[in-house]
Lab assay of single mutants.
Amino acid sequence: RSRTAFTAQQLEALEKTFQKTHYPDVVMRERLAMCTNLPEARVQVWFKNRRAKFRK
């Protein structure tokens, strides 16, 4: 699988949600996936990586 390049709009939506909660539930992730045209699995991995970045 190749690396996913996120658009500015996708990142904005993801970051906005991350500010609200670092652990979105499956419903919220699926809604984000639909809004951003990304698979739910990519949204889940983005949050996992973003939490790791946040802890540093």
Rank of each mutant, 00 (worst) to 15 (best):
K53G: 11
L32D: 00
A33R: 01
V43W: 04
H22S: 05
C35Y: 10
F47V: 01
Q10C: 01
F18M: 03
Y23A: 03
F18L: 04
Q19E: 14
L14N: 03
N49F: 07
R29Q: 09
R29V: 15
E40H: 08
E15R: 01
Q9W: 04
E12N: 07
A8N: 09
L38K: 01
V43S: 04
L32H: 01
F18T: 03
C35W: 12
V27C: 07
R3V: 14
T21A: 06
A52H: 14
L32C: 01
K16A: 13
R31Y: 11
T21F: 15
E40Q: 10
T4G: 07
A52L: 08
F18S: 02
L14H: 03
A13H: 10
A5I: 11
N49G: 04
Q9R: 03
E15D: 03
Q19H: 07
F54G: 09
V43K: 04
K48Q: 13
T7C: 03
E15T: 00
H22L: 06
L32E: 02
T4I: 06
P39W: 02
R50T: 05
C35T: 13
A13K: 09
L14E: 01
A13L: 13
L32F: 00
R1S: 14
Y23C: 04
K16F: 09
C35V: 15
C35A: 14
A5E: 15
E30T: 07
W46C: 07
T36I: 13
E12S: 10
R42K: 14
A13C: 15
R1Y: 10
V26N: 14
M34G: 09
V43R: 05
R3L: 14
K16L: 08
Q10L: 03
Q19A: 12
A5Q: 11
V27L: 12
V26H: 12
R1K: 12
R42G: 06
Q9D: 13
K20Q: 13
Q9F: 10
T7D: 04
A5G: 14
E15S: 00
K53Y: 15
E30M: 08
A13F: 14
V45L: 12
L38I: 12
L38H: 00
H22Q: 10
Q19F: 05
V26L: 13
R42M: 15
A41R: 08
R29C: 13
T7P: 05
K20N: 13
K48H: 09
N37C: 04
R29L: 15
T17D: 03
N37Y: 01
K48W: 00
